[in-house]
């Protein structure tokens, strides 16, 4: 198992190096530069423009800049935002818990509803329930997040008044950040109603962010279950007289889980992508919104650092998924 883990880790390193290059080149190939954006309609003289670009080190040949960037990274320094003047790692660490909290809740919703829906749809193939689940999944998958979020806000917050419109907690509560996770911090604050407020603020954004993964998981579970249910060993289990719950829950589900876990792992990347829009609509102070702002401001160090950190997290999650295969199906770690 350890060798298996090491082998996977060795594959990750060149990928990480590749991401540094992509992140570096990507932001620099975008037209415009941070100095020009700073000046706005007023503009600035070419001399002043050159002076400011030089001060930020953006006048050096791109290969030199990349070399300096790698050197900086090797020292664990992700750079400093040219706009806020704060270290990129510090900004990321401040905002990341908000995204993680939202993503975990979204994923819980997606798994909690997606898995059973897919399983039941597979066991009742062709039924009204099956058609309903598959049609809903397709609708959920195709729905633009922005529109979906706004629709929920208008209905549940605007018309019914059941949920707050946006933010992480009511602004009536104020407490120091301890962990960055609002559910934990609000609980620790001891302020009456703060935890409930944080919970209620999580509902709509989690549903919105969890919609696409839910649809994907439901579809994938259904398809994997259908495949497994037609296998000989399932037929044998049934022939042995095992109850349907045991056949489906133990024999079929365990084998059907391999592709489902792969999909769940891949959804982590989808969640980060979805977080960009969800965070914007729900004024959720996470890394998605921060990345978009940084791109618009051409904050090169923030974009590079942010992309790199997000990529690293997605890679780690996928590594964990690979390890999980081994746990679920011992054959994988022997044959791989």
């Amino acid at each position: 198992m350890f060798v298996y883990f090491l082998r996977k880790l060795i594959v990750i390193l060149p990928t990480f190096f590749g991401v540094t290059l992509v992140a570096f080149v990507f932001i620099r190939t975008l037209p415009g530069d941070p100095v020009m954006l700073m000046a706005g309609e007023r503009g600035m003289s070419p001399e002043r423009h050159a002076e400011l670009m030089a001060e930020m080190g953006f006048d050096k040949p791109i290969i030199v800049q990349y070399g300096l960037y790698l050197k900086q990274l090797a020292g664990g320094d992700f750079g400093t935002s040219i706009i806020t003047k704060q270290p990129v790692l510090k900004e990321f660490a401040t905002l990341f818990p908000a995204t993680i909290e939202l993503s975990i809740c979204a994923m819980i919703i997606a798994i909690f509803f997606g898995l059973p829906a897919g399983m039941i749809a597979a066991t009742r193939r062709g039924s009204v329930f099956d058609h309903t689940v598959m049609t809903s999944a397709l609708t959920g998958y195709s729905m633009p997040i922005f529109w979906w979020g706004l629709l929920l806000i208008i209905f549940f917050s605007g018309i019914l008044g059941w949920t707050p419109v946006s933010g992480r907690v009511s602004l009536l509560y104020y407490f120091e950040t301890v962990t960055g996770f609002m559910l934990i911090d609000s609980f620790l604050s001891g302020q009456e109603g703060a935890f409930i407020s944080a919970m209620s603020h999580l509902i709509l954004p989690s549903i919105v962010l969890g919609t696409i993964p839910l649809a994907v998981i439901a579809r994938q579970t259904r398809s994997a279950m259908l495949e497994v249910l037609s296998e000989d060993y399932v037929r044998t289990a049934r022939a042995k007289g095992l109850g349907p719950m045991r056949v489906i829950g133990v024999h079929a589900l365990r084998n059907a889980m391999i592709p489902v876990i792969t999909v769940i792992g891949l959804q982590v990347g989808v969640l980060f992508a979805g977080a960009i829009l969800t965070e914007t609509i729900f004024s959720w102070p996470g890394i998605g919104k921060w990345m978009v702002d940084s791109i618009f401001r051409r904050d090169y160090p923030a974009v590079q650092g942010g992309l790199l950190l997000i990529a690293a997290i997605v890679m780690i999650v996928n590594l964990v998924v690979d390890l999980l295969y081994g746990l679920i199906n011992p054959q994988i770690r022997h044959t791989d």
Binding site: G158, G161, V165, S170, S283
Partner: peptide, 20 residues
Amino acid sequence: LVFAITPDPSVRYQKLKANE
């Protein structure tokens, strides 16, 4: 005085309506 940072203008309006 509290600034609630709300990037989307339609969401800002919903917050105004809800007295947030």
